Simulated assay, not measured.
Amino acid sequence: MWIQARMTFTTALRETKEEAGLGTEHLQVINSFVQELRYEVRGKPKEVLYWLAELKEPGTAVTLSDEHQDYRWARLEEACTLARYKDLQDTLRAAQRHLEAQQDKQ
């Protein structure tokens, strides 16, 4: 699961709650991974930070806001196909490498 925000971690948590119905009680944030993406939207620069998190209980229901139509859980390559943008695909792959490195340490 991705948590995203423009400014702060607190904003990211608020947005995740508003858009997916998932609060801090549902998430285990992996603080050792944060990725920043910079791009333009309608000619204006945008910076977005992504934090990595997992559900504490895998069966937790996602409740989408009116801003979204659908969601799905996907393996890495499917997620990259859905993401479409190279920088977001690179972020997904970096998160996968990070998780694998964390597992190797254990």
Results as ranks from 00 to 15, higher is better:
Trp2Asn: 09
Trp2Gln: 05
Ile3His: 03
Ile3Leu: 14
Ile3Thr: 04
Ile3Pro: 07
Ile3Val: 15
Ala5Glu: 06
Ala5Phe: 06
Arg6Trp: 00
Arg6Cys: 04
Met7Asn: 15
Thr8Trp: 04
Phe9Gly: 06
Phe9Ser: 10
Thr10Lys: 14
Thr10Trp: 00
Thr10Arg: 13
Ala12Ser: 11
Arg14Asp: 13
Arg14Cys: 08
Arg14Gly: 05
Arg14Met: 01
Glu15Asp: 14
Glu15Tyr: 09
Glu18Cys: 11
Glu19Met: 07
Ala20Trp: 11
Ala20Arg: 13
Gly21Tyr: 06
Leu22Asp: 10
Gly23Cys: 00
Thr24Gly: 14
Thr24Lys: 11
Glu25Leu: 11
Gln28Val: 10
Asn31Phe: 12
Phe33Gly: 04
Phe33Ala: 03
Phe33Tyr: 04
Val34Ile: 14
Gln35Pro: 00
Gln35Trp: 11
Glu36Ser: 06
Leu37Trp: 04
Tyr39Thr: 09
Tyr39Ala: 10
Glu40Ala: 03
Glu40Cys: 02
Arg42Tyr: 13
Gly43Val: 01
Gly43Leu: 07
Lys46His: 12
Lys46Phe: 05
Glu47Tyr: 03
Val48Phe: 00
Leu49Pro: 03
Leu49Gly: 10
Trp51Gln: 07
Leu52Ala: 13
Ala53Phe: 07
Glu54Tyr: 07
Leu55Asn: 04
Lys56Ser: 12
Lys56Pro: 08
Thr60Gln: 09
Val62Gly: 12
Leu64Trp: 03
Asp66Gly: 12
Asp66Val: 11
Asp66Phe: 08
His68Ser: 08
Gln69Asn: 15
Arg72Asp: 13
Arg75Pro: 01
Leu76Gly: 00
Leu76Ile: 13
Glu77Ala: 05
Ala79Ile: 11
Thr81Trp: 11
Thr81Cys: 07
Arg84Asp: 11
Tyr85Asn: 09
Asp87Ser: 10
Gln89His: 02
Asp90Ala: 12
Asp90Leu: 07
Ala95Lys: 10
Gln96Cys: 06
Gln96Val: 00
His98Glu: 01
His98Lys: 05
Gln102Pro: 03
Gln103Asp: 02
Gln103Ile: 09
Lys105Ala: 15
Gln106Glu: 14
Gln106Ala: 09
